[in-house]
């Protein structure tokens, strides 16, 4: 077999082999990646405002933890997920903090008049101001409104590990 014909056949062989591999890889990549990008947008769209409790039933100056039930589109299912928030009612204002630590997303608890994340030992005062630890910012304050006597919260997730509070 002369050299140019040999080269032509080898080239054509490699071309088709690479085409098959590339097409399969592309298909696999798109199939695995695209739905996870789309998923993000459908989350949280259904829970603008979530009812918490009757305002009069919340005590003054004492943090109370509420678990919210949020409906989410969970891939092929319409499901619920639970998220915790801390509510502190004061004389004229209400503070609602997300219980997600702004550092790496662990849970924030309340102990001995301070908020604490035990994962990496971040501390906040009960008004959400950071006192020590690796958390890059204060606790994330959530929007609320009062409808009649009911307290409602708008649950949001925020970008972790940034100095600024950025909704995601």
């Amino acid at each position: 077999m002369d050299l140019s014909r040999r080269r032509l056949l080898a080239g054509l062989g490699w071309l088709t082999a690479i085409a098959c591999t590339a097409a399969s890889g592309l298909l696999a990549g798109l199939y695995a990646i695209v739905p996870s990008l789309r998923q993000k947008k459908s989350l949280d769209s259904k829970n603008e405002w979530t009812q918490l409790a009757e305002l009069s039933s919340i005590p003054n100056n004492q943090p109370v933890k509420f678990s919210l039930q949020l409906s989410v589109i969970d891939g092929w299912a319409e499901s619920t997920t639970r998220q915790a928030v801390w509510v502190i009612r004061r004389q004229n204002t209400i503070d609602i903090f997300s219980a997600v630590c702004p550092h790496e997303g662990c849970s924030v608890d309340y102990e001995a008049s301070a908020f604490v994340c035990r994962c990496h030992a971040s501390y906040w005062k009960d008004d959400g101001t950071r006192t020590s630890g690796p958390s890059p910012r204060n606790l994330d304050r959530l929007d609320y409104r009062i409808v009649g006597d009911r307290l409602e919260v708008r649950y949001q997730n925020f970008k972790l590990n940034t100095a600024e509070k950025i909704p995601v």
Binding site: G13, W14, T16, C20
Partner: peptide, 12 residues
């Protein structure tokens, strides 16, 4: 390459 090219073209 002669059988190789036939096989890859067939797979394609």
């Amino acid at each position: 390459p002669s059988q190789f090219v036939r096989n890859t073209v067939f797979a394609f």
